[in-house]
């Protein structure tokens, strides 16, 4: 039998790779390169000037204002990751272990809520969080003074909105992970003498880590780019990166600045994910390799 030599000119190889390569090139690589190129230009009289210098980068690195917003974005994203995982895990666990009979119906309801337009849902939260909204009305009903909580147009409101829109991702990834755990492993742990709690920490939790991690990464990436919630519920008082970038492009018509801030955000996101990947992979490696 002749062993086929795979070369770059092999038509089958080219044919099978081209579609994906084209999509990646036109919708990922080229936009990224264009964005990067843009950061080395400047704006003069609201027009782009092809100056090829570091004016924009000097500005970014000299103004702490930008970095405050970047820091706020990353910390909001990280808080959102932690809280959404804390919310999602028990829900997914209940769905996978306790509510098996109704799990399909519950999942359909969750998916309906998930598929409802995010703008609509986010504006819906205004009705709840407003000073004269549902939440304060309920609190007043149970005896609190009127307008106990002034949540609307605060970072807390932003966080509530983000959690509402994003927690469903880890809920499903964790649910899928939990469903894949062989019931016998849980029984084996009981059989070896472990309590329910011990079994959870020794078996269930470690084996649901893939879902936990992928859910966390999804929430992190999506909350870094959160745009709607800070604008609608945060009221623009403590903007996040996406709002800053929007302003640079639209209000200030400073495309090079917007492009540079975009690159900064992408780099911060990529570095955080790389650090996360590095630590989880290294921990695996010290535990003995392929598991």
């Amino acid at each position: 039998m002749k062993i086929e030599r795979k070369s770059w000119t092999d038509p089958v190889l080219i044919g099978s790779v081209t579609p994906l390569a084209a999509v990646m090139l036109f919708f990922f690589v080229i936009p990224l390169v264009m964005t990067t190129v843009l950061t080395f230009q400047t704006t003069q009289y609201y027009r782009l000037a092809w100056t090829w210098d570091l004016t924009i980068w000097t500005e970014i690195f000299s103004k702490p204002h930008y970095w405050t917003i970047m820091l706020r974005t990353v910390s909001m994203a990280l808080i959102c990751v932690v809280l959404s995982v804390l919310i999602a895990y028990p829900c997914a666990y209940a769905l996978a272990t306790r509510l098996k009979t109704y799990s399909t119906q519950i999942q359909i309801l969750i998916i309906f809520a998930f598929l409802t337009d995010a703008v609509l849902k986010t504006f819906g939260w205004i009705l709840v969080l407003d000073n004269n909204g549902v939440l304060n009305w309920l609190l007043a009903k149970v005896g609190f003074p009127p307008e106990t909580l002034n949540l609307l147009y605060t970072p807390t409101a932003t966080m509530i909105g983000m959690l509402y829109n994003l927690a469903v991702y880890p809920m499903f990834t964790i649910y899928l992970s939990l469903m894949r755990i062989d019931r016998d492993l849980i029984l084996a742990s009981y059989d070896a003498g472990a309590s329910r709690l011990r079994t959870f920490f020794e078996v269930t939790l470690p084996l649901s880590k893939p879902g936990l991690y992928s859910g966390a990464v999804l929430v992190f990436v999506l909350s870094l780019g959160a745009f709607l919630e800070p604008r609608v519920l945060g009221g623009g008082t403590s903007p996040m990166a996406s709002e800053l970038i929007r302003q640079s492009f639209e209000t200030r018509v400073n495309w090079p600045l917007g492009a540079a801030l975009t690159i900064v955000l992408i780099v911060i996101g990529a570095l955080t994910l790389a650090a996360f990947g590095f630590f989880t992979l290294r921990r695996k490696a010290t535990k003995g390799g392929a598991a």
Binding site: D182, D184, A188, S189, D191, L207
Partner: peptide, 17 residues
């Protein structure tokens, strides 16, 4: 099960992966 003096070898072994 945890408190019984029995131990089980499972059909699919159920080793912790």
């Amino acid at each position: 099960a945890a408190a019984r003096p029995t131990r089980m070898v499972f059909q699919k072994l159920a080793l912790f992966p």
